[in-house]
Nucleic acid binder design. Structure first.
Lengths: 366, 366
DNA sequence: AATTTTCTGATTTACGTACATCAAATTTTC
DNA sequence: GAAAATTTGATGTACGTAAATCAGAAAATT
């Protein structure tokens, strides 16, 4: 049988109360005694039963998630994943509230962060905008000892505890690598559609993309960035104009959201040679375009993984416990039409039963 | 506060004992009473506290994992992941034993399955070999009501409960798609290196690959399959011979293991035009080759995900509880040199503390 | 040596569920 | 309508840990 606190007490020759004081770092234990207990723990290989501990504590973690709203599938998917996490809150002992702020608006984000701070939650997750005011607001939270995790887009120079998102430079590099190879012999410049250069994730993707294009595919010029504000309508207009202005465009890298507009523009472009298109985030629109051959590859970050990782990290930070870095690394998924995951719909292997023993993992965003 | 069994009892106007009988489907409850209780559960939105339930049960799950041995990084990585799961067994209430069998040997596998059956574990996970004898052996386990999950390679026609692995047809299709596009204008046939046509995963990858090559890239012939038995030395020899015999080969798809041998053969092939190489499974060897430009892309299945998924499914089956299909789907990862995950090494964000509150997920295989 | 302070032990309750036992109430059967 | 069978209630213990209280022991201070 697995050792318990009683076994520690026996092994160390102390009482249960003292073991408890050591385990939960309470005051009132001499250093010698503490060491005796720690050695006993080491010796018998005690591991705290987390389930029992949580049961006894019956602790709940109030978290605040600050997300941008707007007509954009990825962010809506992200929000859906947070809501899914809220659905699990009974099991996970969390109490998550969502705060929506306008996209690309640093001022509103600062206000939301300060409002969250006033509620003194056990942690805050935020889709960051790169701005000194936001850095300051995040650091105010930290100075109140409230853990902060940036989600999707990071915040350089801040004291945030962790970033739950992909390596966006690597994403941009990967996009360029695929673009360059997919273009093969074809010539022509490459256009880039972004949301806004205000957010770090978009900037980083652009940097990575340009670096590899320059290094390895110098034959293809990269045209000036089109900023579509992640807005489908605007993106459609701007991409349409760009294609009309430069009919020789060989490829388009869409590194932000608003792909619905891009796809619409591509559909209108009947004439000319085919354009190699690489986009970000698997949504119903990019999925359909991939299947239709309008888009050649989609790079994706799994919003579900990101949300769950953020929650795990916030919990760990709230408990002052270590985070296993490798475990919390979010991958870049590459989808071609051939490896598209099946459409959502929670088909089960067996009929559902009430009060069942579920362990969630690996959900997906659409 | 979240409702408990006491709340059900109060809401239904019955005793705790009756609620317990209903919840744990014990006998001795009239249908009317049972329905009254079930309605109360529905009404107050009761969800069983899994942690408390497991604590009370203090149940452990004895599982058997049957894995092939052999000098092959992927399988060794898989075994490492099972050992990692063994390390978590205290927390996860499992008791996992590993049985090693010779690779591609149906007879030995049948013997191992029957031996496992004699131990009557709570579940068996097995890397299957496609053979009627193996199907029969698996079905013997199932007739003893022992849940069986196939791992990595599936077993068609058997009564196995679940397959924890990737969609290998999709993997093959994806490989062909990448191959065809990466080859661009270049001409020349494509060679395929497999382990053995005895295992279903290799056959399926080949089928998917050939289908797309024929559909979309008919200009490139697919040469007869080279069977390297997942053995580096043999693979090296056979690939070397193939390259010597057909210097015009434009691409190689390595759909099995033994990539070390493939890489060695590629290194020796100094002369001639570059060959586009797509391989499976990210190991230290394929990682290095990707970085060196010897391999162009690596398709990967995350052994860690597969093992953890298998365990979750076995537990669920052992408890007669539903499995959420979408949750247990294993993805095909595509790696280019640009999106390689960092090398292993469990860097942490904070110093380690004993008895910490960890929730594992998303580990990785190397 | 007496006093204060600090440390340690013993014990109890609680968390939410599982499971067992025995008595009491209700239904079914003859 | 009595006996038998079934259903329900009441109660207690257990799982492993957290947390609190209070008494007693040991150490530090005077």
């Amino acid at each position: 049988m697995r050792p318990t606190v009683h076994d520690i007490a026996a092994a160390a020759g102390v009482s249960l109360a003292t073991v408890d004081r050591v385990l939960n770092q309470r005051a009132g234990v001499r250093t010698v005694t503490r060491e005796k207990v720690e050695q006993a723990i080491e010796r018998i290989g005690y591991v705290r039963d987390v389930a029992a501990a949580n049961l006894a504590k019956s602790r709940i973690y109030p978290f605040v998630f600050i997300l941008p709203f707007g007509d954009n599938s990825f962010m809506r998917g992200l929000e859906a994943q947070v809501r899914a996490a809220i659905g699990r809150s009974a099991v996970e002992r969390t109490d998550i509230s969502i705060v929506s702020v306008p996209a690309f608006n640093a001022e509103a984000l600062v206000a939301a962060l300060d409002e969250a701070r006033a509620r003194s939650p056990a942690g805050v997750a935020v889709v960051a905008i790169d701005s000194p005011d936001v850095v300051a607001a995040v650091d105010r939270l930290r100075s109140d000892r409230i853990p902060v995790v940036t989600l999707v887009s990071d915040l350089a120079g801040s004291k945030r505890d962790h970033f739950a998102g992909v390596d966006n430079i690597a994403a941009g590099r990967t996009a360029a690598s695929l673009m360059g190879r997919f273009l093969g012999g074809r010539s022509g410049p490459v256009a880039v559609l972004a949301g806004s250069m205000l957010v770090r994730d978009h900037r980083e993707r652009l940097d990575g993309f340009c670096a590899v294009m320059k290094e390895s595919f110098a034959g293809h010029a990269v045209l000036p960035v089109i900023e579509g504000q992640d807005d489908p309508a605007l993106a459609e207009r701007l991409v349409g104009e760009a294609l009309a202005a430069s009919p020789e465009i060989a490829g388009i890298y869409s590194l932000g959201a608003g792909n619905r507009g891009l796809i619409a523009a591509l559909k209108h472009k009947s004439s000319g040679s085919p354009v190699c298109v690489i986009a970000h985030e698997l949504t119903q629109h990019t999925r359909a375009a991939l299947n239709d051959g309008l888009i050649d590859a989609v790079l994706n970050q799994d919003a579900g993984h990101e949300v769950r990782s953020a929650i795990r990290v916030l919990k760990a930070k709230a408990d002052g416990v270590a985070v296993i870095g490798a475990q919390e690394r979010i991958r870049i998924d590459i989808f071609l039409k051939d490896n598209l995951p099946f459409e959502e719909g929670s088909e089960t292997d067996a009929p559902f039963e009430r009060g069942s023993n579920q362990e969630p993992e690996q959900g997906r965003q659409d």
